[in-house]
């Protein structure tokens, strides 16, 4: 699979943001929550490959390493216990950046090039351009990017862009012992997920789904959920989308505001040319 770092989209950029000559296949991670055994090998692999941590664990009453993603902990297995129609279930899901097709972080970012989406769909933060405003965290429907106090920058999963770029699979995928994590083109991963969902349905999990939410244009992480009617049981939003308020101000209020401000300036100049200065008449 050819992988380069061609850029498809760049934050706060107008023209010339795309560098791509080539049409590259979009890549995706496949996560099957039904065959995850919660071993956390992916967590360790992520820390090692990315030279992160160590981050002290936090006891939350489950096997979960931390309550949430962390600027130095980008890959977290979430452990949830639920009473389901099939009885008690122990649900584990690998949480990380979802690499949205339409990333809310990128839309919210005010700094040119601080968040980029590569042609292969990977969404990445460029710390050199990041101004640490935190808007990406607010804009992300999955609450993924985290502000690092030490660096003053945002940090998150890169989908191992440095590995993928040279034809390797991401570190987390490499480490998974049950093959519940897989990596390939988005099309292949979606096909694999669909067949797995069919198998689950045949085994009585009527609500099984492949989580690939359309509200953000689909994600670069497709997740098989046995209880797809309850994505929140896995810590996933039901219908994630980029905030309409964000779109309202960036696409409507901002151009209107520019017109209003420039219009007032022109009106003032026009008024002066037509009316001239207001001064007392001679002899007043």
């Amino acid at each position: 699979m050819p992988q380069t770092l061609e850029i498809r989209r760049s934050s706060a950029s107008l023209w010339g943001e795309k560098t791509g000559m080539r049409h590259l296949p979009v890549v995706a991670k496949y996560i099957d929550t039904t065959t995850c055994i919660g071993c956390k090998a992916c967590e360790v692999a992520c820390q090692e490959w990315n030279d992160l941590g160590p981050v002290p664990t936090v006891q939350t009453g489950t096997y979960q390493t931390l309550p949430n993603l962390h600027p130095e902990f980008w890959n977290l297995i979430r452990f949830n216990e639920r009473e389901t129609d099939k009885g008690f279930a122990w649900l584990m899901r690998k949480d990380q950046c979802m690499h949205c097709e339409d990333p809310g972080c990128l839309a919210a970012c005010p700094s040119p090039g601080a968040i980029v989406q590569y042609a292969n769909g990977i969404v990445d933060v460029n710390p050199a351009q990041c101004i640490g405003c935190g808007y990406c965290e607010t804009g992300c429907p999955f609450d993924v990017p985290k502000f690092h106090q030490k660096t003053g920058k945002m940090a998150k999963c890169t989908l191992c862009v440095d590995r993928v770029g040279v034809g390797l699979e991401p570190a987390c995928i490499k480490a998974c012992p049950t093959a519940c994590l897989q990596f390939g083109t988005k099309d292949d991963m979606v096909a694999r997920g669909r067949s797995r969902v069919e198998a689950l349905k045949a085994n009585g999990f009527d609500h099984a789904v492949l989580y690939d939410p359309p509200g953000v244009g689909g994600t670069g992480v497709v997740t098989v959920l046995a209880h797809g009617d309850h994505p929140e049981w896995y810590g996933l939003p039901r219908d994630p989308r980029v905030s309409p308020l964000l779109r309202l101000w960036k696409s409507v209020l901002r151009p209107l505001g520019a017109v209003a401000m420039l219009g007032t300036l022109f009106a003032a100049v026009g008024h002066f040319m037509y009316q001239g200065p207001k001064e007392p008449r001679e002899g007043a």
Binding site: L253, R254, L256, M261, T264, A268, H271, F272, P277, K278
Partner: peptide
């Protein structure tokens, strides 16, 4: 966003009326 836009509109008018439009 909304407040700053209205603010700038008002300031443009304020500066204009306070300078060119009304000498002195």
């Amino acid at each position: 966003d909304l407040t700053f836009i209205l603010f700038v509109v008002a300031v443009v008018l304020h500066v204009y009326l306070g300078t060119a439009a009304e000498p002195g």
